[in-house]
């Protein structure tokens, strides 16, 4: 009985996850995005464009990794809640700290121009 459970469970787990082709696509996409990031770094002079594009790409790569490679998309919703909650608190606290401590630094982007 237990043995069959192992089997069916493992199959469930496999069925629950995307196939290798999806992973391959994700890998291609992530690698492509990384190349684009480097191209942006070398080609664009406009600061706003550079920061904006890099931030957008970072977000896409982050979601792709966490959603597909760590299976968050296919896993229990409550796990997303756990990780998302922790990430939210970490991000807000750290963003506030940087904003308070580095106003004379990074966040005054217009100083570059």
């Amino acid at each position: 009985m237990s043995a069959t459970h192992v089997d069916s469970q493992a199959e469930d787990a496999a069925a629950n996850h995307p196939g290798d082709r999806v992973y391959f696509t994700m890998l291609g996409m992530l690698a492509g995005l990384t190349v684009i990031e480097v191209i942006i770094f070398y080609l664009t002079d406009s600061l706003v464009l550079r920061v904006g594009l890099l931030a957008a790409l970072l977000l896409v790569k982050f979601v792709a990794q966490i959603g597909w490679f760590t299976h968050l998309r296919y896993d229990d919703r409550r796990i997303t809640l756990v990780f998302g909650g922790c990430l939210f608190i970490a991000l807000s606290v750290m963003f506030a700290t940087v904003a308070m401590m580095a106003v004379d630094g990074f966040f005054l982007l217009n100083e570059y121009q």
């Binding site: 009985m1 237990s2 459970h5 192992v6 469970q9 493992a10 787990a13």
Partner: peptide
């Protein structure tokens, strides 16, 4: 110890 950890135990609890 006799229980396979990858099996969510709920599936076998009413076996």
């Amino acid at each position: 110890p006799d229980h396979d950890e990858s099996v969510p135990l709920g599936t076998s609890s009413h076996a």
